[in-house]
Structures are given as C-alpha cells and as structure tokens.
Design a protein around this nucleic acid. Sequence first.
DNA 1: ATGTCACAGTCCCTGTGA
Length: 253
Amino acid sequence: MIVATWNVNSLTARWPRVEAWLVEKNPDVVLIQETKQTDAKFPFTELARLGYESAHYGQGQWNGVAVLSRVGLGDVTRGFGDDDPEARIIGATCAGVRVYSCYVPNGRALDDPHYVYKLQWLAKLAELVENRDPAQPFVVGGDFNVAPADLDCYDPSAFEGATHVSEPERDAIRALESAGLVDLTRALHPNEPCYSWWDYRNGAFHRGWGLRIDLLLVDSALLAKATDSHVDREARKGEKPSDHAPVIGEFNL
DNA sequence: ATGTCACAGTCCCTGTGA
C-alpha cells in the first residue's frame, strides 16, 4: 500500500498537477492539505472517475484537508470534536488502517497568538494519538509546520528566533513520538535531509533552501511493514507547482 | 532577507497569509 501526504496549496489552482500526479503514481491513499475549498467545490466526481473515494473537511478561503483512497474509505471524522472553526484535520479508515490528514497551524511568529494556537493544536493532536485504538494500524500525515531537527532545515542559523524550529514545537513532535509514533521518512533515511518544502521566493528550490516539515508518523505495526519512504521532488518542478512536494510511504501489508 | 503564489474584495490593484 502506497500512502502519500501532500500540501497542494489550493486544490483549485493545483488540480491539473494533482490529477496528472494521481494518474502517474497511482497511490492507494493520499492525505491532502490546504485544499482552500468549500465542500461544494471539491472534485469528488473527478476523483471518483480516477478510482478514488474521497472525504473532505472544507472551509473555503483557507485550510481544508482531505483523504483520497482507492482501497476503501469509511468512519470519517472531521476536526477534534471541539469548537475550533478551522478545518485542519480529517480522519478515515482505509483498508483497515486508521489515517489522518492534518494541517498544523503555521504559528507566524514566536510572540504571535497564532503560535500559542499552534502549540495548543499539537497538544490536541497528541491526545488524539494517545487515545487511538492500539489494535488498528495508524498513520497521521500532513504539513506539521515543524522541522523536527536541525537536519530538517537547510540553515538553522537563518531560523534563529523563528517558528518551525523552536524547542516547544519540536517538543510537540517528540510528544507524538512518545505516544508511540515514528517519523517514517527519518527512520528509513537517518542522514539525508529529505526536504519537503521550499519557499516560492528567492529561487529557494534551486538553491536547496528547503525544510522537512511534511511528515508521515506511523505506529510500530506500520513501521514493521514499511518498505520505502521518499519525497517526490519532481512534483515541485515545472508549471504551477505547490511549494510542497509529496511525501510517500510504502507498506507491505 | 525576501527575487512568489493564491485568495478575496476594495475588483485589474491591494491587503493578507504562507
């Protein structure tokens, strides 16, 4: 089973790239972030034509997350079940695997209220992970907006005092690992950066100025069956790319 | 630090978010 996570930065703007990528790669489960669509605009019909069932938690101008699956899709949950109005997490069960697609708040700046929201949001995610059914294989993938270690950042000195690399944010990722999840790409590639995001500005992609902020966090049952993980850098090239590349995990279930 | 992209509304430019 091939599971991918991809922040598409507007599914409306990205649909031609997303459609071509699905046809070319034929992944089984795709965790999408930043659809920036209402449910009314989401391409359910077009995806069905490609063989995918889909579930969307849409908002409109911002956020929006989705799960696509060609191996079955059920038990969909949207949000944490609290009063958060932002559409940032959706869960589903696909071929017996519990999957979540999440778009962690950006944080904006260390002294911004949005940074507090980010840490609170990650604490709620940890609670969800701790309360999972241990009998069910589990993966939460998405744009975490955190580079978990210095290896995940092209120049840590350029990020001093910035979000994405601060200790509280990294502690929040470690809390997910303490709850039993493993960062799949890093587990299989301990020494390669494996960046997944490059700023649109300053020719960052061609200069290698990237961050690894898109993660697949899997439980020990899935880790034991993992055969590969990689970043599809090709998707960051060409016409109208997202600023994120898909991160892929492969499992022999 | 910022050479970009996407969105909505003020609607063919500007402010906001990333």
